[in-house]
Simulated assay, not measured.
Amino acid sequence: MISNKAKYALRALLAVAAQPDGEALTSTEIARTHSIPHKFLEQILLDLKKAGILESRRGKAGGYVMLRPADTISFGEVLRIFDGPLAPLPCLSRVAYRRCEDCESEARCLIRRELARSYDASRQVLDSRTMADALREGQDAPLTAPVRRAG
């Protein structure tokens, strides 16, 4: 499960990326429009700025704009900024690999093998899907299946 910080970062980033021709979007507009606590959002935007994804502009037309094109920023990159490695086990991480403390043999570990299948599929999707992909396809399909209530 991703953190609220990562989820809010993705919402904010998609909002800024959706602006036409690099128009700036203020943190107040993002917070209000996308139901993100403003103080929390300010830290998230600062982290995205430090990561070289957004830049801030001062003045009357100020706010946040994309520093990099939306088609170069993957969901995986953003999740790693806010939540760290995506791997479910440290021995599967490409960024923060370390051997499991209780591991006898990575080659024979059934848990590692099965979780690697899921992780590889998930990582491939998260690292190949960009903010531009989401914006391009966002209007065409529902986000989730309808929720069914027991009763």
Rank of each mutant, 00 (worst) to 15 (best):
L48R: 07
P142F: 05
P85E: 10
P90I: 02
S105E: 12
L54K: 01
A9Q: 02
L46N: 10
M131N: 04
A17C: 14
L143S: 12
L67F: 07
D83W: 01
S118C: 12
R117V: 13
V78K: 05
S122Y: 10
R57I: 03
M131V: 10
E29S: 15
S74P: 07
T28E: 09
H34K: 03
G59W: 14
E101R: 12
I81T: 08
A18M: 09
E101D: 09
A121H: 13
L41T: 07
L126S: 06
P142W: 05
Q43G: 00
I53S: 13
S74R: 05
D83T: 00
L143V: 00
E29F: 14
A15S: 11
K39M: 01
R68G: 01
I53T: 09
R98Y: 08
A121F: 14
A96I: 06
L13Y: 03
K5S: 00
R112D: 08
S56M: 03
T28K: 08
R11S: 09
R129L: 15
H38P: 03
E101K: 12
A31V: 03
S3R: 13
N4D: 00
P146M: 15
A116I: 03
E104G: 15
L89T: 06
I53A: 12
A116R: 09
P20F: 06
C91W: 14
L25D: 03
R98S: 13
K49L: 03
S93P: 12
E106I: 11
T72V: 00
L135S: 06
V125C: 02
Q43W: 00
G62P: 12
A132I: 07
L79I: 12
K49P: 01
A145E: 02
R108D: 15
V147A: 03
L89I: 04
S122D: 07
Y64Q: 04
K60L: 14
L48I: 05
T130Y: 10
P20Q: 10
M1V: 11
L54N: 04
S118I: 05
R117G: 11
L25C: 08
G22W: 06
I30T: 05
D83N: 10
L13Q: 03
A12T: 00
C91G: 12
G62H: 10
V78P: 04
R68H: 04
E55V: 01
F82S: 04
Y119H: 15
A61Y: 07
E137H: 15
L79A: 12
K49Q: 05
Q139Y: 14
L126F: 02
G76V: 02
I30L: 05
A121G: 13
F82H: 07
E23V: 11
D120G: 09
G59A: 11
I73D: 05
R108P: 03
L143P: 01
G59V: 13
D120V: 05
E137K: 14
L135G: 08
I73L: 14
Y97F: 15
R98C: 11
G22I: 08
G63Q: 03
S118P: 02
S128P: 06
V78L: 07
V125A: 08
S118W: 13
R11M: 01
P146F: 13
D140C: 09
M1C: 10
A87P: 09
L14I: 13
C103E: 11
F75C: 04
R99I: 11
G52D: 04
E42L: 06
L115A: 05
V95I: 14
A17F: 02
